[in-house]
Computed example of a mutant assay.
Amino acid sequence: MNQRLLEKEGFAALVLRLRSQGIGEPGLLAALEQTPRSLFIGPAHAAEAYDNRLMPLDCGSFAESPDLVARILDLAGLKSGHRVLDVGTGSGFLAGVAGRIAERVMTIDRYRTLTTLAQQRYQHLGVANVVARQGDGLQGVPGEGTFDRIIVTAAFESMPRNYVDFLVSEGVMVAPLRDKDGVVRMARLTRIGNRFEREDFFAAPYLPLVPGVSAAL
C-alpha cells in the first residue's frame, strides 16, 4: 500500500474516532487533513502514523497520538486571527496543525534537535507562519508580547501563574496539571484580570516540564 493511501485511510479512521467523541469542527478537521502525520513521525512508523498511541521521537521524547492532539486543539478553540504559543514542540505536528488555523504560531522545546527537525518539516510543507525555537518551557517567551492561546504539552506541578502575563485578556491556556491525587489532567485556564479561571478535563500522559534548555541535543 502506498503512503498516500495509508495517509488517506489513517485520516479517515481518525475522523471517525474524533466524531465519536463529539469533535467535528470543520476547520480543525481540515487542518488535520492538510498536515500529513507521517511526515512528523518518520518512515519507520509511517504505517502507524494515525494510530491512537504514543510514538517514540529523538531525544527520548514521544509524540502524542493524533487523537490527543485533536482533543487539545479542540479545547484551545483556535481562531484565524490568533497568535499561539506552543510549549513542547516534540514532533512539531501540533504546532503544524495549529498553523493551518491560526495567524501565527511559535513553538519552543528544550531540545534543539527537535526544533530544527520541526522547522525543516514546516518548510517542506510550505507552512511559513510557524516558527520553532529552542527555549525553556518554564520561563515562556519573555519579550515576545502576548498570545491569544498557549498550549503546553508537558506537565506543571502547580498553577503556572507566571504565564498570566503572556496571555491577552480572556486568552486561553491549555496545559497538563498534576492534581492533588497525582493524576495529570489537561486543564483550560482562562485569563480573567490577573488570575486564571480553571477547568479540568481528561487525563493525559505528559511528564513534568524540565527547567532550562538542553546543552547536548
Rank of each mutant, 00 (worst) to 15 (best):
L54V: 12
E157K: 10
M186D: 01
A154R: 00
L207T: 07
S61D: 11
S214L: 05
A187H: 14
G60R: 03
A215D: 14
A95L: 06
H82R: 05
L217R: 13
G22T: 07
G22V: 08
A95T: 03
S80T: 14
A102T: 06
S20M: 10
I192V: 15
L75I: 10
G99E: 01
Q21V: 03
A132H: 03
A44E: 15
A13C: 04
Q3G: 04
R188H: 03
A95D: 00
A47P: 00
A154E: 04
A215I: 09
R4K: 09
R121A: 04
R188N: 05
E170G: 01
F62R: 06
L117I: 00
P56T: 11
G137E: 07
R191L: 13
I72K: 12
N194T: 14
R188L: 08
Y122N: 10
D179N: 15
F156N: 01
T190S: 09
C59P: 04
V213F: 09
L207R: 09
M55S: 09
S91K: 12
L125A: 07
Q119F: 09
V97G: 05
G10I: 06
S214K: 06
R185C: 14
V105T: 06
G135H: 00
K180H: 09
G135W: 01
D109H: 07
F202H: 12
Q3K: 11
M159T: 12
R37L: 10
Q120F: 00
L57R: 02
P43A: 11
Q120Y: 04
N2M: 06
G88A: 00
Y111L: 03
E48F: 12
I192H: 12
L14V: 03
L177V: 08
L209K: 05
R198H: 09
A203T: 15
E197Y: 08
P36H: 07
G10K: 06
R149M: 05
E144Y: 11
L28T: 01
V174S: 01
D148G: 09
P66T: 11
T113S: 15
F11W: 06
M106L: 14
R53L: 13
A216K: 14
G90H: 07
I151H: 04
Y122P: 00
L54Y: 04
V184T: 15
S91P: 13
G182M: 07
